[in-house]
């Protein structure tokens, strides 16, 4: 009898203690960490595998810490399977294309956004609606006519061909216009009264005041091209003019490619984006959040 009460007392005490433990919080933290592992593990795998010989990568269980730095992977990644050094050239191509597109997008989008937000002219709303309408046309639906245009102009295998369809984006124009709508017109008028030309106003007053949007837009356009596989796939056949996504898909196809070199290519191809990301993560995250403002 007494034993039983003691036992029940004890268990209720234990129960009480258990109830005090914030189970929900622990569970949520656990889930957050599981998700974290899921998100980060493939990245860690990429980096560690790039330092291992292929025999270690496909060994079960996977060893997470490389025994030593297997430099041959990186050598092979840069040289390519046939030793033709197309990889550095392709990285350069990607950089040229992505930087140019980022530059022209920022320039043209801010110019157009400024024109639409701060000037009154006939047909302004029509132009704005027209540009917005192009957002509904997916690139995938127009790639074949574009391809025909590119072949007609004989700009396959050129930088011009890679860049031309992406000079400016409707979303960029939209973003710039929305941002500049709130820009006080008094500044512009003051500058005009002081005798500043319209181009001077644009480059010296409007552009410097748009840096956050410019950064987000620049990053979005840069990564859009860094990531672009479909269009280069259509118009580039020349190995020398290929961009990184094309190189990776070709490198992965080749029989001679081993797993370590593959991951070394992946690491090297991601370095520019990661540098951008860690230097400007505010704008990356902001770029994601910008879509929020689209509903307004």
């Amino acid at each position: 009898m007494t034993d039983k009460t003691i036992a029940s007392n004890r268990s209720s005490g234990l129960l009480f203690a258990l109830k005090r433990v914030p189970w929900a919080r622990i569970l949520i933290w656990f889930l957050l960490i599981v998700m974290l592992v899921f998100c980060v593990m493939p990245l860690v795998f990429m980096v560690t595998a790039s330092m291992m010989p292929a025999s270690d990568i496909i060994k079960m269980p996977y060893r997470w810490i490389p025994r030593d730095f297997h430099v041959e992977n990186y050598v092979k990644a840069i040289k390519g399977n046939d030793g033709s050094f197309t990889f550095p050239r392709n990285i350069l191509n990607s950089l040229i294309v992505a930087l140019t597109v980022a530059f022209t997008t920022v320039l043209l989008a801010s110019l157009t956004g400024y024109g639409l937000a701060k000037f009154r002219f006939r047909g302004r709303n029509f132009v704005f609606m027209m540009i917005m309408a192009t957002m509904m046309i997916p690139f995938e639906a127009i790639m074949i006519p574009l391809y025909m245009v590119a072949t007609g102009l004989h700009i396959q295998n050129t930088y011009l061909g890679l860049i031309l369809p992406f000079l400016v984006s409707a979303f960029g124009v939209f973003q710039m216009r929305q941002y500049l709508l709130t820009f006080p017109g008094e500044f512009l008028d003051a500058a005009r009264v002081d005798g500043m030309g319209e181009i001077g106003i644009f480059t010296k007053i409007v552009l410097p005041n748009c840096t956050p949007v410019i950064a987000t837009l620049g990053i979005l356009s840069f990564r859009g091209q860094w990531d672009n596989l479909l269009w280069p796939l259509l118009i580039v056949q020349d190995e020398k003019m290929k961009t990184i996504p094309l190189y990776i898909s070709k490198f992965a196809e080749e029989k001679a490619t081993d797993e370590g070199a593959m991951m070394a290519v992946a690491v090297l191809a991601s370095i520019p984006m990661f540098i951008l990301f860690f230097a400007l993560s505010k704008y990356f995250i902001g770029g994601a959040a910008v879509y929020e403002s689209r509903k307004g």
Partner: peptide, 14 residues
Amino acid sequence: YTPAVLSSVVAAAI
């Protein structure tokens, strides 16, 4: 967010 930094081709390769 880090996985989103990789290009989709790299993601697929990994």
